[in-house]
Design a protein around this nucleic acid. Sequence first.
DNA 1: CTGCGGAGTATGGTTCACGA
DNA 2: TCGTGAACCATACTCCGCAG
Length: 277
Amino acid sequence: MTVDEASNSSEWSREQDKAFENALATYPEDTSDRWEKIAADVPGKTLEEIKQHYELLQDDVNRIESGCVPLPAYSSSEGSTCHAGDEVTSKKGSDHLGHFNSESDHGSKNSRSDQERRKGIAWTEDEHRLFLLGLEKYGKGDWRSISRNFVVTRTPTQVASHAQKYFIRLNSINKDRRRSSIHDITSVGNGEILATQGPITGEPNGAATGGSSAKSAKQPSQLPAAPPGVGMYSSPTIGQPIGGPLVSTVGTPVNLPAPPHLAYGAVVPSAPMNMGP
DNA sequence: CTGCGGAGTATGGTTCACGA
DNA sequence: TCGTGAACCATACTCCGCAG
């Protein structure tokens, strides 16, 4: 793969990758002194390294788009190369991550009894954000494009499934919501979650972020009616409030999708899921 | 009054079936 | 072939009762 290429120049830690990723989203191409700013945001990396890394990234994206590089084998390959472990460990070190093997493998319609159901790999906030971006850009239904250009770590099927849950969640917002979930994130920002604009939250602080259920989950829904931006399907909040910073993010998917060498370890990464006790 | 444990419930992810 | 809807299953979280 291209893994080695990436790690060649110098080691990029997940944190650095994430910082890099966020910086890319933060400073659009037309930003003056873009690289300087990005370099400033990525600790321990020089301007040179930043540029080099970006070129690599672009190259990978190009290859992906030109079809030269098969989409990641997702779960299957993840297991081998990787890190999947650390990243998705989203929740409290749940153990179910170790064993995702051989992707469902379409063809085989093994009955459940035959093949054990794959344990779910939780979506990270990063992935969810990318999903939202993709949703905004391609709209509802084009899961393939979203999977291909945004959430490269997920298959179209997974994206569709996630979307299904997401919309269900949105719809049920009016009802009483008891626990916070990643689906409460209905908009994206530069690597940060714009604490949902009110719809669901109600959580004073970025409760949604910490993900792991801020105890505030107890709060009964205080939104009797459908929240402002959240319509029904289509683009709820999405596509509206995001305005600002996001605008730059969208439309430049190049920044977002993780190229092969990043896709499995760096980008989806660790995400700020659980910040420890 | 506080801490612990168990039961119940919500949430999230995968898989299957059906239709366009 | 792809998207959608529904069902199934596993896990995490919350609530409640009991013991110390």
